[in-house]
Design a protein around this nucleic acid. Structure first.
Length: 375
DNA sequence: AACTGAGCCAACCGCCGAGAC
DNA sequence: AGTCTCGGCGGTTGGCTCAGT
């Protein structure tokens, strides 16, 4: 049985809201608060669908909404979060005080996606196009030669014993503060290459361990995220994250991971510092769940602090200041004073490093990199 | 001035999970 | 267990604005 419509659409007004209608919603909410939205049209004297009233309130009339344009810091946060969790706009929006999921989604679709594309970054995978091309070449090599091969000329010291895993590594790989790290031997990165796993996977394992997040849980859900995002970007992904199946198998020969049944992205994002170098420590009420005092720093002598020291791309993680997840954009973005930051250069510098890498790759893949691509 | 296309964003659509019954 | 209602979510669309011709 299909779900009946929430209202008689033929008899309700649609389209843009008038100031008068807005006033009615505001008056209703101020008198009765937020409750059963299906009753709102009737009680407020509106000829609108209750769902439409709710959307109007949440996306436009809510008093805590920001009306000004997105800041560079918000941009960077959106990019990082999209990199990590994909198009979970509501979760991303929860990290941006005063922004709605609709705001974030629109901003991504109209600005950030194009911006990344122009910078040579695939907005879906967050990989440089050149890396996608090289990965594509590597996959072709794999298909032709079987397992245990070497990745072209860029990853000469990395042996792969399984087929490349999909998305989370691209997602997580982009968390490297410097794309050069991706292509360096694991030993150089301070990570043992004895483990036969994808380097970035290995790297993220270290990261998550260091930030006291249940590693198994995170890996599972990143992995789950990846498998779902590879096939579809449907909204059911959230469900999968919240209620994962009992086991996974990326490839028939690969390890199965038993997921934690209680993982919740929202809780994770709201209560744990994000494992991104450069993730900002909000200075107001956004990150009340992340308290420097209740999270003794475990970052000071960690691989990622090594990354921070060698960071050239601007996604620095610095300024631990005794607190877990205490990141400071100010040192990389510019002069941060109080809550207001100077315009960011970190994204562009990150991209610049990628473009530099492309230049280095140019002699190796002249035919490929000279081509332009449309996505 | 008129037309066109791109950019933008508010609003809608349809699906889903949770919870009440 | 099945049905229904509600709110939440991500994807998509309609229409407005504006720059270019």
């Amino acid at each position: 049985m299909g779900r009946p419509p929430c209202c008689d659409k033929s008899n309700v007004k649609r389209g843009l809201w008038t100031a008068e209608e807005d006033a009615k919603i505001l008056a209703y909410v101020s008198n009765f608060g937020i409750g059963n939205w299906t009753l709102v049209p009737k009680k407020a004297g509106l000829n609108r669908c209750g769902k439409s009233c709710r959307l109007r309130w949440t996306n436009y009339l809510r008093p805590d909404l920001k009306q000004d344009s997105f800041t560079p810091q918000e941009e960077e946060l959106i990019i990082n979060l999209h990199k990590a969790i994909g198009s979970r706009w509501s979760l991303i929006a929860k990290q941006l005080h005063g922004r709605t999921d609709n705001d974030v989604k629109n901003y991504w679709n109209t600005k950030l996606r194009k911006k990344l594309s122009k910078m040579g970054i695939d907005p879906v995978t967050h990989k440089p196009y050149s890396q996608i091309l090289s990965d594509y070449g590597n996959i072709s090599v794999l298909l032709n030669t079987g397992n245990n091969y070497q990745i072209g000329s860029l990853n000469k010291n990395i042996n792969y014993t399984s087929t490349p895993k999909p998305e989370p590594y691209s997602v997580l790989t982009t968390s490297f503060p410097n794309t050069n790290m991706i292509n360096r031997p694991l030993e150089v990165q301070g990570i043992s290459s004895n483990e036969n796993i994808i380097p970035s996977w290995n790297f993220m394992s270290h990261q998550f361990q260091q930030v006291n997040i249940n590693q198994e849980t995170i890996q599972t859900h990143f992995f789950n995220e990846a498998t779902s995002s590879c096939s579809s970007s449907s909204s059911s992904n959230v469900t999968q994250l919240s209620s994962p199946p009992q086991s996974y198998s990326c490839q028939p020969s690969q390890v199965q991971i038993a997921p934690s049944p209680s993982f919740n992205w929202s809780e994770f994002l709201l209560t744990e510092p994000l494992p991104f170098p450069g993730f900002p420590q909000q200075q107001d009420h956004h990150f009340q769940g992340v308290s420097p005092s209740n999270n003794p720093s475990t970052l000071a002598q960690t691989p990622q602090s090594n990354f921070a020291s060698g960071n050239e791309c601007g996604l620095n993680q610095v300024g631990h200041e005794g607190g877990l997840g205490k990141f400071d954009f100010g040192s990389t973005i510019g002069s941060q004073t109080n809550n207001r930051l100077e315009p960011s250069s970190s994204v562009s510098s990150f991209v610049n490093s990628i473009l530099d890498q492309d230049s280095e790759m140019q002699p190796e893949f002249p035919d490929i990199l000279d081509e332009s691509f449309e996505y």
